[in-house]
């Protein structure tokens, strides 16, 4: 705990060298020099602000002291090589890491002035507010209608069948799926194509009426055409939701996001406007990654 407190001072000053923190043996070989976050960590009027977020999987220290603000109605992309902790960080934002045995998240994540990384917070309403779309399309093995209606039903968002129908229809419309499925709402959601399934999952998420949508590599299992549709959709959804998207496609990050965060081996290396990150990276590691020298 002490080391975390000490490093916090450096972090906020944002002046470069971070004090070496305690690390388990396997990651001790990493050069800890020059790994403090560069770029614009803070934004005005953030939707969520994360301070000193550390994640441990048992002995493994997966994320080191991440500080990051997520702005309102922005699409923030998290990029980085495999195993860099971008998905783990994303899952901190709605406490999905709780479901993983042996995963410990420390630090502070504030939303609406409330500390969400606290035992006192009930994760059920939090996840209704900060909902998640996963890497692999995972519709429930039920009808398309039931897939979308599940969220509103468990949260009691609709008082009657008519309202529920309306939520289902608008959600499917927003997800750009309505025209394709309006004639087969009672057919199983698993019978759709991969891209349609992922849009169904997005519709299911939208139906709950969240404020922040977390997307964990939503297009990695899809072909380029389906990917393009999802990307268009993300762009449309930006007006109503704050979206955090994890992707390992740099082109996708460049296309859909306003800000980009580059993670490397558990450290947040650089954050900034997407255009700046891709045209003029400040950090050597970022430059190496986006120019394809590794990753």
């Amino acid at each position: 705990m002490d080391t975390i407190e000490k490093s916090k001072v450096d972090e906020i000053e944002d002046t470069g060298v971070k004090e070496p923190v305690f690390m388990p043996e396997d990651s001790a070989t990493i050069d800890r020099e020059n790994r403090a976050t560069v770029g614009e960590v803070f934004v005005d009027n953030p939707r969520m602000s994360c301070r000193d977020v550390n994640v441990h999987y048992g002995e493994n220290h997966a994320i080191h002291d991440v500080n990051l603000d997520i702005g309102c109605n922005e699409v923030i992309a998290m990029i980085g090589p495999s195993g860099c902790g971008k998905s783990t960080f994303l899952r901190c934002l709605n406490r999905m890491n709780d479901t993983i045995e042996g995963c410990k998240v420390s630090g502070s994540i504030i939303m609406d002035g409330e500390e969400i990384n606290s035992k006192k917070i009930d994760v059920v309403p939090l996840r209704a507010q900060v909902s998640m779309v996963f890497q692999k399309p995972n519709p429930f093995p039920k009808s398309i209608y039931e897939n979308v209606a599940f969220g509103p039903r468990i949260h009691g968002l609709a008082n009657n069948k008519v309202e529920l129908d309306e939520i289902v229809v608008t959600s499917l419309e927003k997800a750009g799926l309505w025209n394709e499925v309006k004639d087969r709402l009672d057919k199983p959601g698993t019978g759709l194509s991969g891209g349609q399934q992922q849009r169904l999952c997005i519709a299911r998420t939208i139906a709950v009426g969240p404020e922040v949508i977390l997307m964990d590599e939503p297009c990695s299992a899809l072909d380029p055409i389906a990917t393009a549709r999802i990307e268009d959709l993300i762009d449309e959804l930006r007006t109503q939701f704050t979206i955090c998207i994890v992707t390992h496609s740099m082109q996708q990050a460049a296309r859909v996001s306003q800000r980009t965060a580059y993670f490397h081996l558990g450290d947040l290396i650089e954050v900034g406007d997407t255009t700046k990150i891709f045209t003029n990276p400040k950090h050597q590691l970022t430059e190496d990654y986006i120019t394809g020298r590794f990753g």
Partner: peptide, 14 residues
């Protein structure tokens, strides 16, 4: 499959 559980938990099912 755990993805089914995650899907439900991810939209706030208890």
């Amino acid at each position: 499959p755990p993805s089914i559980r995650e899907a439900a938990l991810g939209i706030g099912a208890s």
